[in-house]
Design a protein around this nucleic acid. Structure first.
Length: 108
DNA sequence: GGTTTGACCCTAA
DNA sequence: ATTAGGGCCAAAC
């Protein structure tokens, strides 16, 4: 297990703490685990998850409230559906999806 | 080993 | 307000 694995582990544990119906940002997760400049690594970590994971990766979006997933195996629509299913309003704008952070951002 | 690549974000213009 | 550029750090190449 390399050093990065430990970082991933902390990322996953923090994402698990985001409650149903709320969202967090990549940078927020990075800051909360004490590695404020690792926002991109949070993306790497979530992308590495297995499809059947219990980590609620769908609750992590970018700083502007946009769904920024880029993954061949999981299209944006999957994340949108998962969020809506737990009560998060997801609007569509010019083919992109966004969430009102003022309402749904997790404030631990 | 180095170089490039992201599910990002801040700053400056 | 919007955008270009650069920094970041683990993985992938």
């Amino acid at each position: 297990m390399g050093r990065g694995q430990n970082l991933y582990f902390r990322i996953y544990n923090m994402v698990r703490r985001v409650p149903r119906g709320r969202v967090a940002t990549y940078g927020q997760i990075a800051a909360l685990i004490g590695s404020p400049r690792s926002a991109r690594v949070v993306g790497w970590a979530l992308r590495a998850l297995e499809p059947d994971t219990k980590v609620p990766w769908q609750r992590v979006i970018n700083k502007d409230g946009m769904i920024s997933i880029e993954n061949m195996h999981t299209p944006k629509s999957v994340q949108v559906e998962l969020l809506r299913r737990e009560g998060v309003e997801v609007a569509e704008r010019q083919g992109n999806f966004w969430v009102e952070l003022n309402h749904y951002l997790w404030r631990p």
